[in-house]
Design a protein around this nucleic acid. Structure first.
Lengths: 162, 162
DNA sequence: GAGAATACTGCACAACCTGTCCAGTGAAAT
DNA sequence: ATTTCACTGGACAGGTTGTGCAGTATTCTC
């Protein structure tokens, strides 16, 4: 596991809040040398703490305002991976995990409308190996996906520099 | 709804794949003028298509390799928002939505281990207003969160119906 | 179809930032 | 005591950014 200290968390906070600041500006804001910021960013990326810096695309803004969660039961003979590969070909399926419990797969899917959601679900259940699908619609996003609070929690229990 | 065309998708693809390329380099790669890239990026951000460019932090790498999904039932008297605010104070709770169906809230939570997950769940169920929690553990990430395929689907159908 | 609005190109300029060195300092580990 | 490591502050050349502008192509509106 990669060690992450308080300065790392402050760096990531800053870049999350203002992604367009450069390394130099960040060093000024945080009161450390530019080389330090650069070295930290390199290390965070190398250690896999930072997976990427890609754009966060809002599905609502591109015409898919409906989010739903589906849990799938698959036939005993079918491999999870085979089913997942078929699901990967449906662009509206944004995320798939295998899960414990009575169901086998969990998916996040989006659609253009509630009516359109039916079309997407039909595409999902038609996948060979899927036995049953159960869907709930996400009505409101109470807490949008976040990691930064966790990052601070992960650092506060370590001895930290700075 | 914001219109997104094929060039927008190509721009976002490029920046998702190689986030460190600058505007100038992107213009060379895509064969368009630098000003075009700049204008497109400004527009995408202004229209809310791109919510941000923050770092993608891997929870596994910072010591939280266990992901679980919990669905919560809340008491009739309690507001969803009040409960969500309490959940927001637990850093291991990464995401919360209100949902349709028999359950009221859906949460994504992470933990340091299966044993640690119990600690986190305890923190969740202790929140005032929560009646019942049902948790499943995510075993494997078959499709990591993605939006780009959807972006291409949204652009390829030039005339889009709603 | 004409005019207007919009998007794109190609170019220019100054200011700024990046990648990459380096030597020196302090703290922690051996 | 010695080594190792992270950080600082400084330097340099080269590349990039923000900005503005004129010219052209495309789409929209009447």
């Amino acid at each position: 596991m990669a060690a992450v200290d308080a300065l790392d968390a402050r760096i990531l906070d800053l870049f999350a809040a203002e992604p367009r600041v450069g390394v130099l500006e960040a060093s000024r804001r945080l009161g450390v040398a530019r080389g330090t910021i650069q070295a930290r960013l390199d290390r965070l990326q190398r250690d896999g703490v930072v997976r990427g810096w890609g754009p966060d695309v809002d599905t609502t803004a591109i015409g898919y305002p409906v989010t739903a969660f589906a849990t799938l039961q698959i036939e005993q003979g079918s491999g999870h991976t085979t089913v997942a590969e078929a699901l990967a070909r449906i662009p509206e399926v944004l995320e798939v995990h295998t899960i414990t419990g009575a169901e086998d797969l969990w998916c996040r899917i989006v659609a253009r409308s509630n009516a359109d959601l039916q079309r997407v679900i039909d595409q999902v259940v038609i996948v060979r190996g899927i036995q049953r699908a159960s869907t709930v619609i996400a009505l409101a996003e109470q807490i949008p996906h976040r990691v930064l609070p966790l990052l601070h929690a992960a650092t506060s229990r370590t001895s930290n520099t700075q």
